[in-house]
Nucleic acid binder design. Structure first.
Length: 615
RNA sequence: GCCUCGAUAGCUCAGCCUGGUAGAGCGAACGCCUCGUAAGCGUUAGGCCACGGGUUCAAACCCCGUUCGAGGCUCCA
């Protein structure tokens, strides 16, 4: 079904003549309505009562927003080229009419050629067009329906545990928090440039769109793959340290599997669908189901809890609306660490929750993002707040600055508590990075059981944690941060451990190349990424190129260096050239990349041997 | 998904309004230069002007559609 919904000052129509034999028998009188929502409807092949009810649900939802109680259903075939038979169409239309009977509802005659005149209101919500399918019934699900009904209260909580009203809170020292808090009500910002990270992800030869794939599925060039893989390894290591057991689960699932069916119904987003040998498969949008199904088959005792399963999903898929996709910020295929902890009871869950909060903060900082780069939001049900006030206050105190609070009157997701760290970018967009949730529903849904001290089976409480958020989104955040540095007059850079090249050696003349090779060997042996710009270009040119590649250290090698024990190091951070002992220099670098994973150069050592990816 | 805007050389863009031989810089290839901390010099190649239709004697340019991208809306578990 396709609908076009218009909020009108008035509409006037006159039935002219019957267009089809099955047209309704009516008295062809002109009608006129004032202050009304007109919904043009095209009923398509396969539409039925559920589609009708979904459509009315959505129409009512938006009518509530614009505060209008009057509805005109106007059959309009021209919205679709795949129309249902007139008989079905009329039935569906009448169904819609009766479903909307709590409003003041009218219906224009079906099967007639009509002339009409209407005046549409000028406000932003006045015009709206939607495609409604059976599938979107499944998709829009309980979660969406409940969400529109649910009451939530927004506050700011300060580190002293006090709740403040958003409207009266003084944001002057917390600009980013204000952006986050007002994000939903934020009015149009006129931005006519693409987000800075999109230009950078291409310019730095990290990632790019792949037109031959679906939108939101990116390609990663050697630099991007190196950076992504280092971040992935870092997150893996941190979760291993925390005690996560790394597993691997399938990326596609039977949508009619009994445990999954009701779970999928809990999520509004659309999935990628694959039909294969009569099965309807969906691509996973998180690692939850794979791990839950696995845990169901484990034999668990309270002694083995908490059990922590972990997977870095490459990939998770969410078929976001095409208009929502942006660079590396919002994708349809992304890599996400997903770590679940199965806990015996709320006490254990809370204890675990604390560890994971610290872990997440730790990981975010290790990735090169600072306190000032993100704002925290914490959401919980009123009941949970009343029973666990001190946990929430303690968590906010740890962050040490005000956080955004959303409190729900009742539970409508599967969790009772959830927090996220939100990165705020150059265009004032907020995106969630780390997150953790306390889930009290899915243990039962998936029939995951452990036996307690009395040898009785129990359902665990499950925590869902992504300590870094999607890896692509981490890269987005790092690039946006670099863009911000650049805009504010600082030199943009990656954390040294993520830099595709950490040291560049530039021989002054070709005859020094051999010496440079040896130097590069001995630096490379210390697990430092070093390359050599052996191109026949001027020294100035090669230094400039190294600068534009954000390479931190440059070693120019000439007669002087070959005959000296010291290295001549140009540090991009300061722009200064310093003489320094080789060992001290290595030490300086090692100190900065300590505790971080290392990978070899993902390009030829010689710059002259490299393909030109982006200028 | 909807509305608006955009797509011209590998990259960044001019040309389009007012239809008549396709432009620049960077990059690439080749040659010269052999250099001391952010662009040395020259020559050459490179374009079915996103794709498909239409209008016209003639379309990169005007019109319609499609694809992809961006902004806004909706959405963001």
């Amino acid at each position: 079904m396709r609908i076009l919904q218009l909020h009108c000052d008035n509409i006037e129509y006159s039935p002219i003549k019957k267009e089809i034999s099955s047209a309704e028998d009516i008295d062809p009188k002109s009608k006129r309505f004032e202050e009304i929502v007109v919904v043009f409807v095209a009923i398509e092949e396969g539409d039925d009562k559920t589609v009708a009810s979904n459509a009315i649900l959505q129409i009512k939802d938006s009518m509530k927003k614009i505060d209008c109680q009057k509805l005109l259903l106007y059959p309009y075939a021209h919205l679709s080229s795949n129309l249902a038979s007139p008989n079905t169409a009329l039935l569906v239309l009448k169904e819609m009419e009766s479903l909307a009977s709590d409003l003041e509802v009218y219906r224009a005659p079906f099967g007639w050629t009509k002339s009409y005149k209407l005046q549409v209101k000028g406000h932003p919500l006045a015009e709206n067009s939607k495609v409604i399918t059976k599938e979107s019934i499944d998709d829009s699900s309980t979660a969406l329906k409940t969400e529109s009904k649910i009451k939530s209260f927004w506050h700011i909580m300060t580190p002293d545990g006090k709740m403040h009203d958003i409207s009266s809170f003084n944001f002057s020292k917390h600009k980013n928090l204000e952006v986050l808090a007002k994000y939903e009500s934020a009015k149009k910002r006129s931005v006519d440039e693409p987000p800075p990270h999109v230009r950078l992800m291409k310019k730095m030869a990290i990632a790019d769109y792949e037109p031959a794939s679906d939108s939101g599925n990116m390609r990663f060039y050697p630099n991007g793959r190196l950076i992504k893989s280092l971040i992935e390894r870092y997150v893996n290591e941190k979760i291993h340290e925390y005690g996560g057991l790394e597993v691997e689960t399938p990326i596609m699932y039977d949508s009619h599997h009994p445990s999954l069916e009701s779970y999928f119904n809990r999520f509004p987003a659309r999935q990628y669908n694959i039909n294969s040998e009569g099965k309807h498969l969906i691509l996973r949008f998180a690692a939850c189901f794979g791990q839950f199904l696995m845990a169901t088959d484990f034999q668990l005792s309270y002694k083995t809890m908490p059990l922590k399963l972990y997977e870095l999903t490459r990939y998770s898929f969410r078929r976001e609306q095409s208009g929502e996709l942006v660079g590396l910020r919002r994708l349809r295929a992304f890599t996400m660490p997903d770590c679940h902890a199965f806990c015996t009871d709320m006490k254990q869950a809370v204890e675990e929750f604390r560890k994971r909060f610290d872990l997440s903060r730790n990981v975010i900082h290790g990735l090169g993002l600072e306190e000032s780069d993100y704002e925290m939001a914490i959401r919980f049900t009123e009941d949970f707040y009343n029973e666990n006030k001190s946990l929430i206050e303690e968590t906010v105190k740890k962050i040490g600055r005000p956080v955004l609070v959303e409190m729900w009157k009742e539970k409508f997701f599967y969790f009772v508590l959830k927090w996220e760290f939100n990165f705020i970018d150059n265009l004032g967009k907020a995106s969630a990075l780390s997150t953790d949730q306390i889930d009290i529903e899915n243990g039962q849904r998936y029939n995951i059981t452990f036996v307690d001290e009395q040898n009785k089976p129990q359902f665990p409480i499950i925590l869902h944690n992504s300590p870094s958020g999607a890896i692509e989104r981490v890269i987005y955040a790092l690039l946006e941060k670099a863009a911000k540095d650049s805009r504010e007059g600082r030199k943009p850079h990656f954390p040294l451990w993520l830099a595709p090249t950490q040291i560049r050696i530039i021989p002054l003349k070709p005859e020094f190349l051999e010496y440079c090779e040896k130097l590069a060997d001995s630096i490379g042996n210390k697990n430092i990424r070093v390359d050599i710009d052996d191109r026949n270009e001027s020294i100035g040119k090669r230094i400039r190129d190294a600068e534009t590649e954000w390479i931190r250290y440059i070693l120019v090698i000439g007669e002087k260096e070959m005959s000296s024990k010291n290295l001549n190091v140009r540090d991009r951070e300061s722009g200064a050239v310093n003489e320094i002992l080789m060992d001290d220099f290595i030490l300086e670098i090692q100190k900065q990349i300590e505790g971080k994973p290392y990978s070899q150069l993902n390009f030829a050592r010689h710059v002259s041997q490299r393909p030109q990816i982006m200028v």
